[in-house]
Design a protein around this nucleic acid. Structure first.
Lengths: 149, 149
DNA sequence: TTCGATGCAAATAGTTTGCATTCTA
DNA sequence: TAGAATGCAAACTATTTGCATCGAA
């Protein structure tokens, strides 16, 4: 979806649900769209404050909550520290290296086998959308082997 | 391992590393051993305070950190909310239902296939020891289907 | 008798909430 | 002009830290 389309579409959805379109909200949505990667609430606030310094972090949190309730965005916990936000239609999961923080995005279908296994063996429907899958990237798992062995 | 053995073994390990065995530490370790499931620091503190009301939560956190550094225990984040603690030799992972909070323990070997997949396709060594794998238990995923479809 | 452990208070990070005010629809 | 959104301050949860005191080895 083109950025301009998304911008207008989200605002229309917001209005359709009785929400109001304000200057802070436009700026927050713009910041979300402009971020290629996964911003935190703090990063979004900083972006918005470049042009609108009076915008408060609680406003950002509140609007992010609203967007999440509308199904526009999701938030993910990558580990300790702040949550990150991304558009919900961009369906993927996150592998996070606990040593260096590297985030690897994996498509949903890469989980199918494991999901089936957990479903049949443990009656559990895996959905790691909200928390990342932790581990080590190649580089960090190899340097760990060297230093410990 | 028998509980008494573990108790003495941990205290010996602690001493061997220059640590001191104190009344609060005995009580915290006892509480850890007596908990069949996965207690939080707050629950352990409450347990200890039954007999030693002056014990402070920060003492519990500090001792849990020490035990973790010694490799005796691990802490896991099951989701939002406080971390839970368990003995490190009891190697397993956690599936957590985000709807009802149910925790399913899975043996490490149940992850082998998925781990291999992530290793070969994404150069990533999955190690979900420190954060649980989120999803829905059977009951919650079925009631979700009913109410939304 | 030294230095590690404790109790307590205060700091911290991330996020949420109460409330008077502002502004969209 | 009603009611949603905002700014700000304050609360909140989980955890960590500084520091004087205490006590194990």
């Amino acid at each position: 979806m083109a950025a301009a389309d998304r911008f207008d579409e989200v605002l229309a959805l917001l209005r359709a649900h009785g929400g109001r379109v304000t200057a802070p909200r436009r700026a927050i949505l713009r910041a979300l769209i402009d971020h290629a990667d996964h911003p935190t609430a703090e990063q979004l606030t900083a972006d918005v404050q470049v042009r609108h310094p009076e915008t408060h972090e609680s406003t950002v949190y509140r609007f992010l909550d609203d967007l999440e309730r509308l199904g526009v965005i999701d938030h993910v916990h990558l580990g300790h520290g702040p949550a990150v936000y991304h558009f919900a239609d961009d369906t993927h999961h996150h592998l996070v290296c606990e040593a260096c923080g590297l985030v690897v995005e994996v498509p949903d279908r890469a989980l199918e086998g494991f999901r089936r296994r957990l479903r049949s063996d443990f009656d559990f429907e895996m959905e790691p959308r909200h928390f990342a899958v932790p581990g080590r990237c190649r580089a960090c798992s190899e340097s760990a082997k060297v230093s410990s062995g």
